[in-house]
């Protein structure tokens, strides 16, 4: 291994940050990890844009235009890009809208559902990212090198996965750590 610390970026796209919470659940092992890595863009650092990194961890699927931009930024900057958790791997919960037409969803949520203010409209502020017709797992948009499934992957699974990667081993989880739920 190189002497310098590995530079790591993390982000959550169409996810719930549950995978990040699980990441933090490695508890005191975080200290061991920080001996080996330093963080670039991540909710932990509050860096807004990702620079060149060794490793990128992406939680969540791709549901809107902003997700695409962030994912591309990660792919461009990270030598190794990892899909972290069920939503990144197969779209997860957000993808359960995929059998519905987005136009019907928008109309129902913003215009026709009960309890909306009179004259409610679908928001059209240019600041808001537009949703995609369907939610996609991240491997359908950019090349992904490794996948760590789970909703969320357990702290032990994340630890095993990262220590394997950092040590230069192909990650291998085995029974008990590999989970789709």
């Amino acid at each position: 291994m190189a002497d310098r610390k590995l530079r790591v970026a993390t982000t959550s796209l169409a996810g719930c940050f549950g995978c990040h919470m699980s990441f933090l659940d490695i508890d005191e092992r975080l200290l061991d990890l920080l001996e080996l890595v330093e963080f670039d863009r991540s909710p932990i650092t509050d860096i807004k844009h990702c620079g060149p990194c060794d490793l990128g961890l992406v939680e969540g699927g791709v549901c809107n235009a902003e997700n695409v931009h962030v994912l591309r930024e990660f792919r461009k900057n990270c030598k190794i890009l990892v899909a972290l958790g069920a939503c990144a791997v197969n779209g997860g919960l957000p993808a359960q809208r995929n059998h519905l037409d987005l136009r019907d969803i928008l109309a129902a949520v913003y215009e026709t559902e009960g309890g909306l203010a009179r004259g409610a409209r679908i928001p059209n502020d240019p600041e808001l990212p537009l949703p995609l017709n369907q939610v996609h797992p991240i491997h359908e948009v950019v090349k992904i090198d490794y996948f760590l499934p789970g909703c969320p992957p357990s702290a032990d699974a994340i630890w095993k996965f990262l220590t394997d990667l950092i040590a230069g081993r192909t990650p291998h989880l085995g029974h008990g750590l590999i989970h789709y739920d």
């Binding site: 987005l102 679908i122 059209n124 537009l130 017709n133 996609h136 948009v141």
Partner: peptide, 29 residues
């Protein structure tokens, strides 16, 4: 020569553009 998605990303915003009436730069990919 790099990985390419199977679908047209800009076309994947078409329904949202239609429903919001937006056509600004950020409404395209």
């Amino acid at each position: 020569l790099d990985y390419e998605p199977a679908f047209d990303l800009d076309a994947a915003l078409s329904q949202a553009r239609q429903m919001t009436g937006r056509d600004d730069a950020a409404a395209h990919l």
